[in-house]
Write a protein that binds this DNA or RNA. Structure first.
Lengths: 347, 347
DNA sequence: TTGTACGCGTTATCAT
DNA sequence: ATGATAACGCGTACAA
């Protein structure tokens, strides 16, 4: 309500010029200790808060780094965000977290943010990896795609970095583990065919593993996730519902592989309700390696993505590039098969 | 890289004035359809993106609403955020989500944001509820505290709204349920005494319930959560660790009440590892009513907060105030005791 | 060390 | 319907 107070008001009240106030606020050296203290005291008393829009507009180089997250409610990211935050806090940079709605294009959002906040760098978490190069080049600041899936064409780019696991290979790995334990009829909870994100890559890995063992792909075993505005794609509920449908179809299977741990947990509940025992009757495997998977009963077999390592490398890479000590690179980290209680060998 | 392109460049390329470009961008009516199309086409071609800082600086009334969240990784909020987002999307307002670090003061952050984004309203999710009135009054725009805990002094304020459950009463409710089922020695995973947030209120509720039944408070049964920069307070891991400590102490108890579902799930794992059966040997109850609680085994007894309702009411209240159709109010919603499989009657 | 004046990119106002 | 111009609030060069 009170008329917005500006730097001019502070200057007037202190009997100094506006630049002096500015200097005090920004901890400049070219100001006497005495004046600074006076100015800061008045700022404190009046509760003056500088307008960031005006600052961003004028400031040459901010120290802002943005993290853009698609699917912020995905617990998979919370770990990475916390580590990224800790890493960034060690530097002179300031992090701003920005969520991207599922219908938004993250590069468009980034384009806005670069101008608005005078960003120095960007980290993309999750999301698609099919972006027009033209737009990417318009960003004008270094950026790193993290956990965005690895496509060969992607890996040739010299203009930006990426950090990921090989979703196809890792997905193949866990399905191979199931096959190695005697499972032939393996249901999968996977993304729609049209999906251009990791969901599709993990489905590819599933098919690849089957092919390696000459097991024919049975479309009845492939359960497409419901997707849309309403349902969270990788939610426990979605896993539950889709598994219910699978069971209703009467398709036989000895193992179920869900492309995320959350989906797997939903599936476990659906199986449990039907009196199907895990792992005695059906083995269940997930993907991601969420902490949560270690807390459910039975504990979930999964493919762990090295989130801590990836987050630290993401930060290190971006700061290396910003300081001119590193060049853009595309790093692919191996996942880790974590065998717990929800799977078993059959026959 | 490319020199930043501005509204002036667009104007020049179109052979029009800058104000005409501005009109085209902002869908004003006082511009011919033909010119607008031409301008928009050039904007499209050049990939021009207006600078939001400049816009915010100049614009009189934005349509921005901010949601400030303390503890964004808390799954309890994801539900509310999704609903709030859906409600806000129905209006002319634009929502921006902003996370507040645990060491930051949410009102200070809000103060900055109000100026920077010319906010029209604020929703606070989580966090403390002990704010200086002086600062709150400086905000100058309507705001609603949601799920911030209900304190009597708080409820007298006419200058803002709050939406909450009565944490003391609800906590008391679930402990009473345990007592009613024959439990006398009830361990609690609770916040530290110094906590000024909901954690403390829930502990109060626990003590109140014991008192009502003349059960003496045994300090050995009160397990303080680890808190700090490193550990997420309401995490499964914290629940696990604290329960381990409880068990190591050898204190006897027939029920365990955790002040959040995530903590309860961690506790269940710790009990499970000791061969303690739930609910046969120990009953476990949580608080919050997360969807997750319905997916674990055994399914978790809990006190559900009506998140959907609260989110919708939060939106409705804020928009009512913004449109002058409502006054500030303080609403307290009842929680719901959800009895599932993790608790049982003894004796 | 300090103050003055200009400009950041946009929208609002006023004139045409 | 359109264009010129003055703000918005601050940082920064430059002068003092």
């Amino acid at each position: 309500m009170a008329d917005e107070i500006t730097i001019k008001d502070i200057a007037r009240r202190c009997g100094v010029g506006v630049s002096t106030v500015s200097r005090a606020m920004n901890n400049r050296s070219d100001i006497s200790k005495k004046t600074r203290e006076k100015v800061l005291r008045v700022i404190e008393e009046t509760g003056f808060v500088p307008n960031n829009s005006a600052r961003n507009l004028k400031r040459i180089g901010s120290q802002n780094i943005a993290i853009l997250i698609k699917g912020i409610s995905n617990p998979f990211f919370t770990d990475m965000i916390n580590i990224l935050e800790a890493e960034i806090k060690k530097t002179e940079f300031v992090m701003t977290l920005h969520r991207v709605a599922s219908r938004e294009n993250e590069v468009d959002v980034a384009l806005e943010l670069v101008k608005e906040k005078r960003l120095q760098g960007i980290i993309f978490l999750g999301g698609e990896f099919s972006h027009s190069e033209e737009k990417l080049n318009m960003l004008g600041v270094p950026f790193v795609f993290s956990t965005a899936g690895a496509e060969p064409e992607f890996l040739n780019e010299k203009n930006y970095s990426s950090i990921s696991v090989d979703d196809v290979a890792e997905s193949c790995k866990i399905v191979n583990y199931l096959i190695g334990n005697g499972h032939q009829r393996i249901a999968i909870l996977a993304a729609q065919e049209e999906d251009t994100s990791v969901g599709n890559l993990r489905l590819k890995g599933y098919k690849k593993a089957l092919k390696q063992h000459d097991i024919p792909v049975d479309e009845d075993l492939i359960c497409s996730l419901h997707a849309g505005e309403e349902v969270e794609q990788f939610s426990m509920e979605n896993g539950y519902v889709v598994t219910k449908e699978l069971l209703a179809r009467g398709t036989k299977f000895t193992a179920l592989y869900a492309i995320s741990d959350t989906l797997a947990i939903g599936a476990m509940r659906a199986l449990h309700e039907q009196g199907i025992r895990i792992p005695e009757d059906v083995s269940v495997a997930g993907y991601d390696g969420l902490p949560l998977g270690d807390y459910v009963t039975p504990r979930l077999t999964t493919l762990r993505q090295p989130t801590g390592l990836m987050a630290r490398e993401t930060a290190s890479l971006l700061f290396g590039i910003l300081s001119g000590q590193k060049n853009h690179q595309h790093l692919v980290y191996p996942g880790e098969l974590i065998i717990r209680e929800s799977t078993r060998a059959i026959r």
